[in-house]
Each structure stands twice: as structure tokens, then as C-alpha cells.
Computed example of a mutant assay.
Amino acid sequence: MQEKSGSLVEWLVPLAFIFCAGWVTWHMPAFTLTLAQPQDPSQYDKLSALFARADVTPNMTGLFGGYADAVDWLALILIPVLAYVGMRTVRRAAMEFESWRAIDRLAVFIGRVTMMLVVLLCSVMIYEVILRYIFEAPTLWANELSLWLAGFVFLCAGLYAMQQRSHIRIFLIYDLLPRGLQRTCDVISTTLIVTFAFFLIYGGYGEAFDKFYRWETFGTVFDPPIPATLKPMVLVVVTLVAFQAIVNLISDWNAEPVLHTAADDIDQDELNKLRAAVGADVDVPAAATPHKNGTH
């Protein structure tokens, strides 16, 4: 298992993935007009107006008799390519969970994408603060873009947290049970997650598809398609979380039982770094041996 993380390619691929996904998202009206042209004239006019306003490459001719040009199609093709490359090149950091199936790689890669989104979000906020309070020339787009990015960060971080087993869990009774009953509890919790995901998708698919197809925007000057993108993204992420919960159940089925104590929160690597930083031989109790299921 590869544990060396932080190489340059591991950060460039998620950044390129974000750029391509952002490009396709911003030009989604072009794909809708090309692949699923609305029959309602008013809807067609709305999407045409959105496309004309948002098109980054207005001088390029659309391919296949549609609105999406060569750059749009290239960005669309690169999304799955970069996702595959990202899954193949991502490396598990020392503090991350040990399971390393294909869907685990996907979740960790999405985690890296989420980290890059946080960097971009902070950059946008810093840029806005500088312009607003130093140059007194605030932007018309930074606030909405921050909200948009924060929504994706919130959703994608949930999948990464599920894969890492870092979601909130209460072990007070669970640790007292024999391993057989612990497995029963794991099955029940996974079943509840899958059931919740099923009914959320069943009840929210119609509204999410409608907002996506109409490309509903935020209604501001910048007018980003926050409702059109985040509503479907909720369903996509919930589906992935449900699959990840099933994978977690399978991965942890034969794992040895773990007794969770306060020592689990001690990071021995951090303590060693602190000792080296202060240059003193500090007597600090050693952390508990890292457990194999990575739960906290």
C-alpha cells in the first residue's frame, strides 16, 4: 500500500479536474441546447440568453451543429480522464484510513479535489477583502462564488469523511458489545444510510432534474447556477456516500474489535514534531497504537 502523499501531480490533477468541471458547468446551457434542446420556446430563449451571456469563447463555432464548441467538448472529455488519472495517482497519507479499494481511491481523490476547492475559496475571499478594504472596489461575484464553492466543499467533504470513518459516532455502548452484535449494529446503520439515500433520491430527483434542465440561477448580478448545480450534486453525493457505507461494511467485517479511548485523539507524530521544535525532552504519554479501522 502506498502511503507517500503530497507529490506535485497529486495536486495538479485535482486542480485540472476542477478547472474542466468548472468550465463544463459554466457552459452547461450550450450542452443542453445541443443534446436536449427544449421544446418550450420560452425555455429555449432563456437558455440561449444564458449561453450568450456566459460563453467564455464566443468567437468559436459550435461542433455537431450545436452550441458547444471544441473547448467545451474537450473539457467534458477530460473530466472522466482526469478522474481516472487522479484515482491512479492519489496516495494515502500516513494519517488516512488504510482501506484502498477502487471506490476508496475515488473518495480520497474527491477529498483532494475538496482540499483544492478550499484553497480556491480562501483565495477568492482574500481577493475580495483586498479589493473591498484596500482599493475600495468590491467585486460583484466574489460572495456568490464563495457560496457556490462552499456548497461543493460541504457536499464532497461528506463522502471523504465517510471513507475515512471520521464522521460522528458514539461508541459508549458499541464497544461493550461482542463482535457479532457489533456487526449487527454495522448492518443496521448501513441499511439506514442506504434507505435514507434511496428515499432522498426518489423524492428529490424530479425537482433536481427540473432545476438542472431549466438551469436555474441565483438571481443576482453575477447570477451563478447554484440551484441548478447543487440540487443534483446532493443526490450524486448521497448516492456515493451510500455506496461507500456498503464498502466500509464489507471492509470492516473481519476487522478486529477496537476499544476506543481518549488516547485515540493523541497524535504521536504531532507530539514528536513538538518535541523537535522546542528542543526539549518532554515526557508526554505515548499515543495508543493506531487501530486498523480508523474510527474515532
Rank of each mutant, 00 (worst) to 15 (best):
18 I>M: 12
54 A>H: 01
5 S>I: 07
38 P>Y: 01
58 P>M: 02
25 T>G: 13
23 W>S: 01
41 P>F: 04
22 G>C: 10
15 L>N: 04
63 L>M: 08
33 L>M: 11
50 L>E: 07
58 P>F: 02
54 A>T: 05
16 A>V: 07
60 M>D: 00
22 G>S: 14
58 P>K: 04
27 H>I: 12
57 T>H: 04
3 E>S: 15
56 V>M: 14
26 W>P: 03
13 V>D: 13
38 P>R: 07
12 L>P: 08
34 T>E: 02
5 S>E: 13
47 L>H: 07
7 S>V: 04
9 V>H: 15
14 P>V: 03
45 D>C: 00
40 D>K: 13
42 S>C: 04
12 L>A: 12
40 D>T: 05
18 I>A: 11
14 P>A: 09
61 T>G: 02
19 F>P: 03
55 D>C: 10
52 A>N: 08
28 M>G: 00
11 W>C: 00
62 G>N: 01
41 P>S: 01
9 V>G: 13
20 C>W: 01
56 V>C: 08
15 L>P: 07
7 S>L: 10
6 G>T: 09
12 L>Y: 08
11 W>M: 05
17 F>N: 10
50 L>D: 04
38 P>D: 10
35 L>V: 03
42 S>A: 14
47 L>T: 05
35 L>P: 03
61 T>M: 11
17 F>G: 07
50 L>C: 00
63 L>Q: 07
32 T>A: 01
22 G>F: 00
54 A>W: 11
